[in-house]
């Protein structure tokens, strides 16, 4: 029974939380938020998915991509740093400003870096939650089997 509720909650809440996270990430440079917070929020949201769908199933779907996601995050971050060399030195922030429909939009390497941070945090958090949940599931199964045998 609880599974159904969980699935329902997952179906609605997870996209919502992820949306909030993206919002927090985008405004992070100006208001509280940013890569860390957004990443942690996404990880927490994905725990809902894990709970509702079962760790093993989720792992088969996302599992192989988590470590590469961490790698991608690191890569984005270090590339953001390396881009700075073009502007005079490693990690030098470079910005492009343009107007989109009257709003001033600025994009820069620090934000790219922040994106890398977010990816790493998501990858790390979900790796742990997923692996531990899966291990926990396996242990319960294993114990059940062992309990039957004698």
């Amino acid at each position: 029974m609880t599974e159904i509720y969980l699935r329902l909650v997952n179906l609605i809440l997870t996209p919502l939380i992820i949306l909030v996270a993206i919002l927090l990430f985008l405004r992070g440079h100006d208001l509280p938020g940013g890569g860390f917070i957004a990443g942690l929020l996404v990880a927490a949201a994905l725990e809902l998915t894990i709970l509702s769908r079962g760790a093993t199933v989720t792992r088969e779907q996302y599992g192989p991509w988590l470590i590469p996601l961490v790698g991608l995050g690191l890569l984005v971050a270090v590339i953001a740093g390396l881009l700075g060399i073009y502007g005079g030195g490693f990690f030098h922030g470079m910005w492009i400003e343009f107007y989109l429909g009257g709003d001033k939009i600025k994009m820069g390497t620090p934000q790219l870096f922040d994106l890398g941070v977010m990816l790493v945090v998501i990858g790390m958090g979900v790796t742990y939650l997923l692996r531990l949940s899966e291990a926990a599931e396996a242990v319960s199964k294993n114990d059940a089997v062992e309990g039957e045998q004698p």
Partner: peptide, 17 residues
């Protein structure tokens, strides 16, 4: 930066079966 860059690339490889 060099070890980090190549380490990150290595991690990217980690998922490729």
């Amino acid at each position: 930066a060099i070890p980090l860059l190549f380490g990150a690339l290595s991690l990217l490889m980690q998922g490729i079966r």
